[in-house]
Design a protein around this nucleic acid. Structure first.
Lengths: 207, 207
DNA sequence: TGTACATCAGTGAACGCGCGTTCACTGATGTAC
DNA sequence: TGTACATCAGTGAACGCGCGTTCACTGATGTAC
């Protein structure tokens, strides 16, 4: 028995090929099993040794990325917020976007599948975003970054930041020349949103 | 010669069928020409009478929706902002989401293609969003809704609002039970963002 | 007003091709006794 | 330590099917003279 962390080589190659092709073509929807096997230099049949459907493959790939992203974000945010609280938004964005570039193919795939055909896949992506949101909100709470704002609103702010950064990843990947500007934009977005939430919880809102 | 506003019946049926199927399957990517013709009760060949490629069809459908959405938004926003300025965000969101529901299929298609395979389609959708942003920013300027904020920042705020509402459309369509909550969320998002931008332009930001 | 012609939407048969999936197989690695 | 067996990743040939696209056609509508 092998160590259970290592996937069969063919399985890993199929996942890699799927991410690569899905990124090129912006979605798993049009991938074919024969095409995948061809890209992975395997017999078409080998696919069925490891997966029942293409959706299976996509869900497994997503779980792997999520397992890598979340601890990384946690760690980076903590570091940033503890050492330089005022620069935390910027540093967190930088860490996040660096991760995006390192996992370019997976993110392009996930962005496409966010609005994609598979309800299971859409649900899984939303769940990852929700988990990240909860973790970020926990950290914001623990580090007292928004002391005047109640927990529920902190969650709301974090959810909007997470969704915003996720969708912005596509532009960040597609437009290398605008990356600095996008970082500024993301930081400004976060600062505005936090400032607005903070302000409107201090004063009564005569809406 | 017919009036040039009316499409050939087969052409219109192909577009309708494409929107319907693309909405069901979240994307044009997996649509087939024969399948489309079948759904429109036409000979597969008829497709080629009207379009060169599926991308052609999608771009034409998008242009039609955009031409309907933009004047509507313009009109609604003006009305709302002039009559009840403090409720403008809410009323604009309501008008927008009503339009989304009326054009459910087109929006699900556009949401999918926003991250989709066709670069031309992605560009066209972004252009629509950018045009809407400019128009909204114009109106905000003309109606003096954010007098303390410079034009460039108003555009930034509007761009984020437009993108946010666009992506939220999917949840609005998918989760009828949460529609009231989503409206609240959208309004709160806009208010926070505007408040933050306003605040940070009044005081020096010791970032 | 009538006639001849052009344009245009839609039809129907036919093509070759790549697809998903199944079956029976191989060869290597691990395990029981 | 050796042998027999089970498990597992990967192979190769074969199937029937629906696909995109082409061709030559029809029938209705519009236009020139």
């Amino acid at each position: 028995m092998k160590a259970d962390t290592a996937l069969a080589p063919g399985k890993q190659r199929l996942i890699d090929a799927a991410l690569r092709l899905a990124a090129e073509r912006r979605g798993f929807a049009t991938l074919g099993i024969r095409e995948l096997a061809r890209a992975a230099r395997l017999n078409p049949n080998t696919f069925y040794r490891h997966f029942d459907t293409l959706e299976d493959l996509a869900l497994e790939a997503l779980a792997a990325i999520s397992g890598e992203l979340r601890p990384m974000l946690r760690h980076e945010c903590w570091q940033a917020a503890r050492n330089e609280p005022h620069a935390a938004p910027r540093l967190a964005c930088e860490a996040y976007f660096a991760f995006v570039l390192e996992h370019r193919d997976a993110f392009l795939g996930a962005l496409a599948e966010y609005h994609g055909a598979s309800a299971a896949m859409r649900g899984a992506i939303r769940r990852v975003l929700a988990d990240v949101t909860t973790e970020v909100a926990d950290d914001v709470g623990r580090l007292q970054l928004m002391p005047a704002v109640p927990r529920a609103s902190v969650e709301g702010v974090c959810a909007q930041i997470v969704a915003y950064l996720f969708h912005l990843s596509q532009d960040y990947i597609d437009a290398p020349a605008r990356r600095e500007a996008l970082l500024d934009e993301a930081e400004r977005f976060i600062v505005w949103l936090c400032a607005g939430a903070h302000l409107l919880h201090q004063q009564t809102f005569a809406g």
